[in-house]
């Protein structure tokens, strides 16, 4: 093989090899939840050390973060409930609650129909009378077969969901007199269908 041929072969080989280098594709940093060979448990996303308080997450406000006032379940919401909050509550309720509690809160959601323990309806006397702080505690710490949703639903959203549950409770126990005059005709025509 002449020197020129050898050079040519080396160049062609180098060109082919470049396609196989992935250094820039896989840079030496972790992506979220990527496996790690460094830590003994294989996780790059490290669990927090017990007792860690992140900046801005001191959570001194017991009403907002624990749903209690003077150690009792809060009877009021920690912030004003506006139409925007209710809409947010409906959206979050439909995402996180409807699978079991169903869209109207009767506790007959699809997962219940598939075998999960049936939760009580929100429309029974006990839950209609329960203070918002009680619902907050159940979402935050779980109850019975229900796991807590504290890792999925931020506190403000929990309150928004509770506000929407209140709206659902109203909707299932309302009389025609409580419906705004402009909406009655619409409801009656729908009921007639």
């Amino acid at each position: 093989m002449s020197a020129r041929n050898r050079l040519g072969a080396a160049l062609a080989g180098a060109l082919l090899l470049t396609a196989c280098r992935q250094d820039m594709h896989d840079q030496p940093r972790y992506e979220p939840l990527e496996a790690s060979a460094f830590f003994a448990d294989g996780r790059s996303s490290r669990p927090q050390v017990a007792g860690t308080v992140a900046r801005g997450e001191l959570r001194l406000d017991a009403h907002l973060y624990a749903g209690t006032v003077n150690g009792e379940p809060a009877t009021e919401f920690p912030f004003e409930i506006t139409m925007d909050v209710l809409e947010r509550g409906r959206e979050r309720y439909d995402i996180f609650c409807s699978a079991c509690h169903d869209y109207v809160g009767n506790g007959e959601g699809i997962v219940v129909r598939r075998g999960l323990k049936q939760p009580p309806s929100f429309h029974i006397e006990r839950l209609r009378d329960a203070p918002p702080g009680y619902f907050f505690d159940v979402i935050t710490r779980g109850f019975g077969a229900m796991y807590d949703l504290s890792d999925k639903v931020p506190v403000e959203d929990r309150w928004a969901i509770i506000a929407y549950v209140r709206a659902l409770q109203l909707s299932q126990n309302a009389t025609m007199v409580e419906v705004p005059a402009g909406m009655r005709a619409m409801l009656e025509s729908e009921a007639g269908q």
Partner: peptide, 17 residues
């Protein structure tokens, strides 16, 4: 990152179903 659920999310239903 959209997030991959923790095992707890699976168990929320599959502890019974």
């Amino acid at each position: 990152f959209a997030g991959i659920p923790p095992t707890k999310t699976c168990m929320g239903c599959h502890s019974l179903v």
